[in-house]
Simulated scan of single mutants.
Amino acid sequence: MHLAVDITDIGPETVIMTLVGELDMFTQPVVEATLIGLQARGVTRVVVAAAGLAFSDLSGMLTLCRADEELRLRGGGLTLAAPARQVLRVNGLLAAEGLPVCRSVTEALGVRLARRPHRTHAGPKRLPRPRSSI
């Protein structure tokens, strides 16, 4: 079982934790230690980028749920972003204790991408209608 964990700082209290591989009882201690270290740094908001997380067992999800509870006590929380179907199933088994889920990291961060202003084309100038001389 292999799990890669990468941390990207977004701000002083927000990070993206990217998980790639499998989160199970063998790799769960790595995630738990990482989350404890983040909390010690004062991080209160964690977005777990889970698109590369191929598998998670119940022990892995419970570790993330416990971290979410701790972060909520400090005014933050943990969000699962873009999880695979199998990871969603395990999260769903947790019912009320399950993690909030977003479709993407961007959505989880609450970032709204700026839309390009819409250009309107005025088209050719219209000539005035000829007046009838009756």
Rank of each mutant, 00 (worst) to 15 (best):
M1N: 00
L3T: 00
V5I: 01
D6E: 00
D6A: 01
I7N: 00
T8M: 03
G11D: 00
G11I: 00
E13D: 04
T14Y: 01
V15R: 01
I16L: 01
M17L: 04
M17H: 03
T18S: 00
V20R: 06
L23Y: 06
D24N: 13
D24A: 09
M25I: 07
T27N: 11
V31E: 13
V31N: 14
A33V: 14
L35P: 11
I36S: 15
G37V: 10
Q39R: 15
A40I: 13
R41K: 15
G42M: 12
V43H: 14
R45F: 11
R45I: 07
V46T: 10
G52Q: 12
G52T: 13
L53K: 12
A54I: 11
S56I: 10
L58A: 15
L58Y: 13
L62Q: 15
L62E: 15
T63Y: 12
L64Q: 14
A67C: 09
A67H: 07
A67N: 09
R72E: 04
R72K: 06
R74W: 02
R74C: 04
L78Y: 04
T79G: 03
A82E: 05
A84I: 06
A84F: 07
V87T: 12
R89M: 14
R89E: 14
R89W: 15
G92F: 06
L93S: 07
E97G: 06
E97H: 06
L99D: 00
L99S: 02
P100C: 04
P100N: 05
V101C: 05
C102F: 07
R103V: 06
R103C: 06
T106S: 08
T106E: 10
V111R: 03
L113K: 05
P117R: 02
P117N: 03
H118R: 05
R119T: 03
T120V: 11
K125H: 11
R126F: 07
R126T: 10
R129F: 07
S132K: 13
I134G: 14
